[in-house]
Amino acid sequence: MSQWKDSGKLGLILLVSPLALWLALFIVLPHIDMVLISLRERVAARQYAFSWGNYTEFFTEPLYWRTFLRTAVMSILATGLTLLIAFPVSFYIAKMLRGRLKAALFILCLIPFWVSELVRTYGWMILLRETGLFSSLLQWMGLVDQPVEMLYNDVAIMVGLVYTSMLFMVVPLVTTLESLDDSLIEAAYDLGGNHLEVIRDVVIPHAMPGIVSGCIVVFMLTLGNYLTPTLLGGKDSLWFTEQIYTQFITRFNWEQGSAFGMLLLVLSSVIVWCGLKLSRQSFTRVMT
């Protein structure tokens, strides 16, 4: 018996160790290092002193915290839009379709993600730029008499972000909606509910864990996205990840960059926590 137990323990260690190593080496250690870097200040060449300065800089310089606020608000908006578009799609896939068609539509949602994000974003640029498809189409139809620039504005960023996030909302939603018993929907109709009431009283409460987990994933991905806002929004897209990039790469100010990185982590966690509290969901329930 004890031999069994020991081999079970060994198996557990073997199975968990790659994950633990991965977490420790690539997540925990770099973050500890980042905290340490962010809490120092260069006083002279190769001489550093402890300081909160990098953090106070964020709150005293309006550009920084306004950029952060803008990023957060845009991300929340993008998450909301993604949910709004993905919910009917997921409901259709999970509840209205059966068999082959269902699998086909689900794969259709997946296919864009076989291509890298960069290529997908360039796709949008081809569509939206001044000499792009939409602009030419509008001119050909005679609706406008000169090329229209549709890139480099907030709408373009939003379109790109929603498009990129779609799958991460559809998958959890389809999974939770599939587990909803059809007879619950029928029972609600049978007792006199109309379409809206059935969705409000039965479908959404059941899908809540899926909605919240989808929203968390999409919000985190959007907030930390660098490529889409930069390419579709241009130089002045004022996305917070760009500020971090600038500090690390352009300005060589690793201390400031680390402080921004930590702030992004803490603030996004706070927003997610608030979202969980507001929707009365627990993190463990949502993520399982």
Binding site: L184, E186, A187, H206
Partner: peptide, 13 residues
């Protein structure tokens, strides 16, 4: 008319 479903379909929430 109202229906009692096979698995009852009581609203769990």
């Amino acid at each position: 008319v109202n229906m009692v479903f096979q698995h009852l379909a009581l609203f769990p929430n």
